[in-house]
Design a protein around this nucleic acid. Structure first.
Length: 647
RNA sequence: GCCGAUGUAGCUCAGCUGGUAGAGCAACGCAUUCGUAAUGCGUAGGUCUGCGGUUCAAGUCCGCAUCUCGGCUCCA
């Protein structure tokens, strides 16, 4: 007999060899029907696998991430089975679960597979699912496994086998399909009630761009049909908020083939939105003790040789600009840090001056791979809300703390409520990868972690993810429909102060090296605006939106009164326009609603007579009449309320 | 950069197996003067991404280039 401990702390005595499925059955038949996998002593197992020693057990269903992953991993095998049935001779590499569904990397050989073939594959998958074929686990010796896949002529599985140790190799079979796989899998294929092949794409074998490309087939499955429908609706919703679509519809930005790939053009409304964000951050930074600096868009190549960026990125960047002077070369600046180092060096610094914080909305140019460009989130010319803090090692903690406060303030004002903080530290196994003294690293890593903890941030620590020049802290936000984005970043840097020989005179009258902190709360204006658009689906907060109010006269006779209202609002710094087209008010309302203008003011006979406006809020409808002054006051206080969230 | 798909009016899209382009919305004009999500009529707008090729004839077929999109790789 063995003891099984369940998550609620209760213990069951069962025969050795009992499976998780058996235990689920003891609890309830309904539960047993839904168990996809089981966590046995912290390891995810097949529910059918026999347990032979005391263990802690957690039954996993569709509601657990690990349960979902198991089903999707099994679904990848189901996909493979369907593909093998329809395309005899195809070869498979790997098929893992991903955040939404799974994929399988497939070598179709001479056969073609296009999106027109998806439906047939989906049908086959469902047919195979209906058969409720069990997933059968089999341990196999390495020699037998090699023989098996050699017979099949499957070079991919043979390659996988090379990396595996004898004694740990398992095969899984469902129906007619057998795959080399560590598992675990759900009990049988019947759990899949809905299947969709989402897309195909090329993917390098082993992720190496010098290898051949396989066809990556993406799919997703669900235990209920309606969950698939809901998922497809969510995707539809995401498409509707896509910043590329909204940016075009709302006249915020554009691209031009003539100007060049990945070089955004900010249209008047987008420019206005952006500069309002910049002003907002500038004001917050001014209060936080930053000083603005301005540096040129190009820099002598020597600058980047000193910084080390030329050696690392020179070949993949916009190439140097020649001058009439022989041998003289300039680079479009790919980052602001080297310039700011030179700002620091413009005069000798004393420990009494530190910390100094140089801020600049610095436009930089990076030659991103063409296939990498994406709307405003990945471009070749963009403006960082950059700043560099130069301080002593002892000041790092407080400075990081202040930066975090600034980022949190911004998130609060802009309603990014759901975020985690990733702390990237050095890899303890490979200390030689990093520059800077052990003492300083330890100080900085401790400082970052302590600050994160003191602020009660939801933190994940990523060992080995630090940059070679220092540890960092990144904010990952979740937008309104649950997608994750990386926004603000704080990075500690021991490298550039060294390379630029930055110094300050200490209290001991000798020279010391400052620590440099890079930080960008937005990341870049382009990226941030893109994420903001998607987060709020184009309905910007009142204080940010380019057009706050549209005045809609009932007929041309009231255009004059409407203009008067507009003037009054203008005097209150409210951005209002009159829709003086000769259209019915219903049409004007519809257009203003679609333009996502927060307030519509309908004016006609009675309003003109009484000096009032009839107020309509976007998405909410008519909210009654107010005098013009009262409306202006309402807007003013609404905005004040939004910006007042300071701690 | 690589794999694949795509490019038709300002926008969203039709255009079957080759026979020199069409709709809705937007724009413009006229009429209408209207009360909370679309007034009517009319006008104008296109080297069908570009360059070559096949053909009596190319938006349609082929090649190359380019852009965009989905991924991969990359992201100082």
């Amino acid at each position: 007999m063995i003891n099984i401990t369940l998550p609620d702390g209760s213990t069951r005595k069962v025969e050795s060899g009992t499976t998780a499925h058996d235990i689920a059955l003891e609890i309830s038949e309904g539960l047993a029907r839904n168990v996809l996998a089981a966590e046995v002593n912290g390891e995810v197992w097949d529910p059918q696998r026999e347990i032979h020693s005391d263990a802690s057990l957690k039954l996993l269903t569709w509601n657990d991430d690990a349960g979902k992953n198991t089903m999707w991993h099994s679904s990848a095998h189901l996909l493979a089975e369907a593909l093998e049935a329809l395309y005899p001779g195809v070869k498979f590499w790997v098929g893992p679960p991903i955040e939404h569904g799974f994929y399988y990397d497939v070598d179709f050989g001479d056969q073609t597979f296009t999106d027109k073939d998806f439906a047939a594959v989906e049908q086959k998958m469902l047919e195979l699912a209906k058969a409720k074929n069990p997933f059968i686990r089999k341990e196999i010796s390495k020699a037998d496994a090699i023989a098996l896949f050699e017979a099949k002529g499957d070079e991919y599985k043979l390659d996988l086998l090379e990396g595996l140790e004898d004694g740990t190799i398992t095969l899984y079979t469902q129906g007619n399909f057998t795959d080399l796989c560590r598992g675990p899998h759900m009990p049988h294929t019947g759990f899949v009630k809905a299947a969709k092949v989402m897309s195909i794409a090329g993917a390098y074998w082993k992720g190496d761009e010098s290898n051949k490309q396989l066809t990556r087939v993406y799919g997703i499955t669900f235990p209920k049909k309606q969950e698939l429908t809901a998922y497809l609706e969510l995707l539809e919703q995401a498409r509707a908020r896509d910043h590329r679509k909204l940016g075009k519809e709302m006249d915020l930005f554009a691209f031009s083939d003539k100007v060049g790939q990945g070089l955004p053009l900010w249209l008047p409304k987008g420019a206005e939105l952006r500069s309002r964000l910049e002003d907002f951050l500038k004001e917050a930074q001014r209060k936080a003790g930053y000083q603005g600096v301005i540096t040129p868009h190009i820099g002598n190549k020597e600058l980047y040789i000193t910084s080390g960026h030329y050696a690392k990125y020179g070949a993949d960047s916009f190439q140097p600009i020649q001058t009439p002077s022989e041998g003289e070369e300039y680079l479009l600046k790919p980052m602001n840090c080297p310039h700011h180092c030179e700002v620091y060096k413009a005069r000798p610094r004393s420990y009494r001056d530190l910390p100094v914080r140089f801020a600049e909305f610095g436009t930089v140019y990076r030659y991103e791979q063409s296939g990498e460009l994406h709307g405003l989130t990945r471009v070749r010319g963009f403006t960082q809300d950059d700043a560099h803090i130069f301080c002593t090692a002892d000041q790092v903690k407080e400075e990081v703390s202040n930066v975090i406060d600034l980022v949190l303030y911004i998130f609060k004002i802009l309603n990014f409520e759901d975020f985690v903080v990733q702390v990237s530290l050095s890899d303890p196994e490979n200390p030689e990868k990093y520059i800077g003294s052990d003492e300083n690293w330890e100080k900085a890593e401790r400082a970052i972690q302590e600050v994160a903890e003191e602020k009660g941030l939801n933190t994940i620590v990523a060992l080995g993810e630090a940059a070679f020049y220092g540890p960092k802290l990144d904010f990952m936000v979740r937008d309104a429909i649950g997608r994750k984005w990386q926004l603000g970043t704080v990075q500690i840097d021991y490298n550039l102060p060294e390379r630029f020989e930055l110094e300050y005179v200490g209290a001991d009258n000798s020279k010391h090296r400052p620590v440099m902190i890079h930080r960008a709360p937005f990341g870049s204006m382009e990226r941030f605006v893109a994420i903001l658009i998607e987060h709020c689906a184009g309905k910007f907060p009142l204080w940010l939106t380019p057009e706050q109010v549209k005045i809609l006269p009932i007929s041309d006779r009231f255009n004059e009164y409407a203009e008067g209202v507009s003037k009054v609002l203008e005097n209150h710094d409210i951005r209002a326009l009159v829709d003086d087209r000769s259209e019915k008010v219903g049409k004007k309302i519809r257009d203003a609603e679609l333009e996502k203008i927060p307030y519509m003011l309908i004016v006609g006979e009675s309003e003109a007579a009484e000096g009032t406006v009839s107020v309509r809020k976007q998405g909410e409808g008519d909210i009654g009449g107010l005098t013009v002054e009262a409306f202006a006051e309402r807007i003013r206080s609404e905005i004040a309320e939004m910006l007042k969230k300071e701690d």
